[in-house]
Amino acid sequence: MTAVAEASQQRARAAARARRTASVVLRSSVALLVFLAVWEAAPRLGLADPVFLPPFSTVLATFVGLLADGTIGLQVGTSLARAGAGFAIAVVVAIPLGFVIGWYARAAQYLSPFFELFRNTAALALLPVFILVLGIGETSKIAIVVYACFFPILLSTITGVRTVDPLLVRSARSLGLGSAALFVKVVLPSAVPTIFTGVRMAATSSILVLIAAEMVGAKAGLGFYITYTQFNFQIPEMYAGIVTIALVGVAVNAGLVLLERRLMRWRAA
């Protein structure tokens, strides 16, 4: 009897949970759905020129077609390889450098003005320089991504190292930890959350800057694809390319959020 009652209670609770989840999903997607509906309706109702703004369903059909024939896969692959390479180089260089600068006050004194200047120089403003020096090939595109990723990671690493709770350092020193152990066991892990903020910012800007660079001069990649289709008046293809960029951005960020959660499971929810 009680078992039956319990089971039905459990079912009721599960149902309530499902309803709550459904309502959360609905609430968070309502704005998006309205946007897509407007997109769909505007060209059909004559509010926008369907040649320049094809209805969403047309773009979606083109997108599916491009996905099937591998065009999107090729462009995304090219762009992600460049962005990934630049991002990886920036991570490998900026994090250790950030630790050095954050840890040694003297290093910061020498280097801060230099970094401050470059940090405030927009990466894209330097694109002509990169192309002049490194040519129009892969090197210049990867280099500009490195440049764009470098500063958010570097600065967040410096902040992460500098904002380590002094009490934790005192306590670890009182436990007899030497400098190396203190660094590995206290400073590094406590800087991880701050560093990760910079890493996420860098990942976002890596794609952003790369697309722009590809639009200026490239033979493949998402940025190239969008300008190329625009020049050739393949408007639905162009929109499909833009949608792809949005999806790639969302996917990259979601991946990093997931990684962040995994790395920082010790944090209070």
Binding site: D165, L167, L168, R170, S171, A172, S174, L175, G176, L177, G178, A181, K185, V186, P189, S190, V192, M264, W266, R267
Partner: peptide, 27 residues
């Protein structure tokens, strides 16, 4: 000398067990 601080000074990324082990690692 062992010290106990008012604000605990535990490493938040370590479990209770791993926090206790910290001083032993130095040893």
């Amino acid at each position: 000398r062992g010290i106990v601080f008012q604000q605990y000074a535990l490493l938040p990324w370590r479990t209770a067990q791993a926090n206790v082990e910290l001083g032993l690692e130095a040893r």
